[in-house]
Design a protein around this nucleic acid. Structure first.
Lengths: 204, 204
DNA sequence: TCGTGTGAAGCACTTCACAGCT
DNA sequence: AGCTGTGAAGTGCTTCACACGA
C-alpha cells in the first residue's frame, strides 16, 4: 500500500483533517480515535481509518492515532513541511482581506509578494509587504515562489494567469468567476463565492 | 426520469454550467452542443449530456441545446428563478469585499442586510446598505431572508451560526476556518481559502 | 452527417464486518 | 474492552457506444 494510489477524494479531505488536528494539538490532545475525530471533521469513522491506512499503519489499536504523528504524515503528503511562499495578484478589497488573513500559516504558506496594476498602490505597503508592478511577476521563479493567489477582475484573469504560467508558477488559486486555460502541469483551483452560494437554495 | 434522483455531483456542477451559459447568452450564442460546452466548463461531453438528461430531454439532435432554455431549466432546479435575499454577517475586510462584489446577481442573489458587532460600523453604509446590530438577526425570517453569508472570526462563528439558525435561516455560506454544528435542515457550505490552497503543493 | 439520449459496462470511492493487537 | 487495519461487498458516478432524430 504505497503513496501513488491515494484516491483524490482522500487528498481533498486532508487539509480539513490537518486543520482539525492542529486544533486538537493546540488543546494538548495527544491521541484521537477515528470515532472522536469523526465529530471534528464530519467524515464517518470507517472512512477516516481507510484514509489513514493509505499512508501506512501507525495507529495504536485500542487507543487511536497520535495527533502529532498524523500532522507530520499529512504535512508530508501534501508537501507542506517547508514554508511555501505564495504570491498575491490583485490588491483590491478581496486581495487585501486575503493578505491580512493569518490562516495561511496553518498550512505553512506565507504571502511573500503582492502585485497590483494601480499606480496608487505600487510602492505602498500591505502589512509588511510592498506592492509591486505586475511586470515583476516574471521574477517569481527566481524568488522561489511557485504558488499564486489570483484576485483580479475576471476580465484580466486569463491574461494574468498566462503571465504566471510564463513565470514558472505551478499552482494557482483563482478567485475570479471564470475558468482559466493553462498547461496541464499547472494545477488551478477556482473559488467563486457567488457560485458556491448558488447551490444553497436547492437544499432548502 | 424525474427530479428527485439527480446525483449530487450533477447538482454541484450546475452553478458552473449556469455561469458559462449566461456568458454564452451575453455573447448572443443561441445553441451550444455538449462538445463545445465541454470547453467552457471543463467537463467531458458525455457527462454533460448525462447531466442534462436528468432533467428531461430538450436538446435538438444534430444541433445542440438552446442556451436560454438551459438557463431556465437550471435556474428552476436550483430554485434561483426569483431573486433570493441574502444577509451578510461581518463587515470586516472580507465582508466588505464580498458585499461590493456584483457576481451575486448572476445567480439571483441580492445582499439585503449587513450585520456587524462593531459600534463604529453600525449605522454606516456599505454600498446601499446600512449596517445593523447583530441582535436584529432575529428579524431575518420576517424580512424573508433565508440565506446568510458568514464572514466573522472563527471564534464567534458557531455562536453567530446559532443565532442564524434561531432566526429561521436555512442555508449558510461559512467563510470561517471551522466546521459549524447545525440542525440537519440547515445546509452549510464552508469555504476556507487557506485550506483550499493546501492541496496545491501536492499537485506540483 | 452531426449531435442527442440512454442502457449497459466500467470504475472509483465508500461502507461493512471482523480479525487482530494493546 | 476498545480501536485499528483491511479484504470484500456495496454504491453511485462516469464513460462508452450506438440507435435515433434533425
Amino acid at each position: 500500500m504505497r503513496y501513488s494510489k491515494i484516491p483524490s477524494e482522500t487528498i481533498r479531505r486532508l487539509p480539513g483533517y490537518l486543520r482539525a488536528l492542529i486544533f486538537l494539538d493546540e488543546k494538548s490532545r495527544e491521541y484521537v480515535s477515528s470515532k472522536v475525530f469523526s465529530e471534528y471533521v464530519h467524515v464517518k469513522s470507517p472512512q477516516i481509518r481507510k484514509d489513514f491506512s493509505y499512508f501506512g499503519a501507525f495507529g495504536t489499536k485500542g487507543v487511536g492515532y497520535k495527533v502529532t504523528t498524523l500532522i507530520e504524515q499529512i504535512r508530508g503528503i501534501l508537501k507542506l513541511k517547508e514554508v511555501q511562499k505564495a504570491a498575491l495578484i490583485g490588491a483590491g478589497k478581496l486581495g487585501t482581506a486575503i493578505s491580512l488573513y493569518d490562516g495561511f500559516k496553518t498550512y505553512g504558506f506565507e504571502i511573500a509578494a503582492i502585485f497590483d496594476i494601480s499606480n496608487d498602490k505600487i510602492g505602498t505597503r500591505i502589512g509588511e509587504i510592498v506592492v509591486e508592478d505586475p511586470w515583476k511577476i516574471a521574477t517569481l521563479c527566481e524568488r522561489n515562489i511557485r504558488v499564486a493567489i489570483l484576485a483580479v477582475p475576471a476580465e484580466s484573469a486569463q491574461e494574468t494567469a498566462d503571465k504566471l504560467v510564463g513565470a514558472g508558477i505551478n499552482g494557482i488559486l483563482n478567485l475570479s468567476p471564470c475558468y482559466l486555460a493553462v498547461p496541464k502541469r499547472v494545477k488551478v483551483i477556482t473559488i467563486d463565492i457567488a457560485m458556491e452560494l448558488g447551490v444553497l437554495p436547492y437544499y432548502s
